[in-house]
Nucleic acid binder design. Structure first.
Lengths: 175, 175
DNA sequence: CTAAAATAGTTCAGGACTAAACAATTCAGG
DNA sequence: CCTGAATTGTTTAGTCCTGAACTATTTTAG
């Protein structure tokens, strides 16, 4: 992630650098978006940094393995690329890497000779489990400033937002 | 921004592709994080797409101009790079582009001969205003699924989260 | 059946960003 | 002062991803 983080608009200031835009009153939604973007970007950057430091892997690779971990029977590459919201070319590259490292394997799809079914090897599963445990601790630590009620509330609110956004732009693939 | 979007962990399913991880119970914080990341990534991708389509510019460029718009007197490049949470080299590149297009100008800093002060030209200000207006409409549209009370509540909750995260990792620069 | 359209995966050129090395300048401690 | 450390902006090599072109296969319409 990325990386960037702001957008902005008109007039007045506020407290924190990035989202320090978006005027008074009315611009409440814009301000919410800017803060949402800034928070997410920052946390994502930190996760990315730690994955690199602790395990020497990219976030993309972690996401890839996370997705496969859920599907023991494996996934077609195209499906995986939709879940990960990345292009097919990207999945090809990640698969090549992970296969080289013995963490995932390609198998022929019985019903479609064009496609592969990729799945974690035992080594891949073990490797992911180790990383996932630590990853979750990072999240718990970062979100520990929120009480459980707030956590559930935000989860629901983001759900509301997501449903609305997905409706207006059917671009959103995933199931 | 790119691009990726998930992370994950253990066990059970949920409803939407990406965040369709994170087991039952307890994993509430992890689930919140995954949903937050997925929502933000999706909206960001859409904003990026529209900026490209409507104005032919990158999000990075829009962010850059947004930041300068707030500071009529201009900013030192190093300060700008902190606000935007990107590297100095990136700011150098963006500045070169924008300067070529006549949207920003470099001026010598009177108190430090190493640094430049960059600011929007009149053309740059006008250009940004046009884009910012439309940009805000997009946000209003995307967030219109939330009532104002929810919007303010989420804004406050994210503020809480951000303060906590920034404390634990002084990596966060910006003021 | 068969031709045309759609789809799965791959390859490759290119865009955007980073991290690290660098020159110029400023700052800090003796 | 004045030398060493820190900081500003730039350059460069490298990473990671996209979009478009391509091959091989499957699906769809007639």
């Amino acid at each position: 992630m990325r990386n960037d983080a702001s957008h902005a608009a008109l007039s007045d200031a506020e407290e924190l650098g990035h989202e320090a835009r978006a005027g008074r009153e009315d611009h409440a939604m814009l301000r919410l978006w800017l803060r949402m973007l800034a928070s997410t970007t920052q946390i994502e950057a930190e996760i990315r940094r730690r994955l690199r430091e602790r395990f020497g892997i990219s976030l993309a690779r972690f996401d890839y393995m996370a997705q496969l971990y859920r599907y023991e029977e494996g996934l077609k590459m195209r499906v995986l690329s939709r879940y990960l919201m990345v292009t097919g070319g990207n999945v090809t590259g990640l698969t090549d890497e992970l296969e080289r490292d013995g963490l995932v394997g390609r198998a022929h799809s019985p019903d479609d000779r064009r496609s592969w079914i990729v799945s974690l090897t035992p080594k891949g599963r073990a490797s992911f489990e180790t990383m996932a445990k630590e990853h979750e601790q990072w999240i718990l630590e970062m979100f520990s400033g929120l009480d459980m009620k707030t956590v559930r509330q935000m989860h629901a609110q983001l759900g509301q937002l997501r449903v609305h956004v997905m409706r207006s732009e059917p671009a959103g693939e995933e199931g």
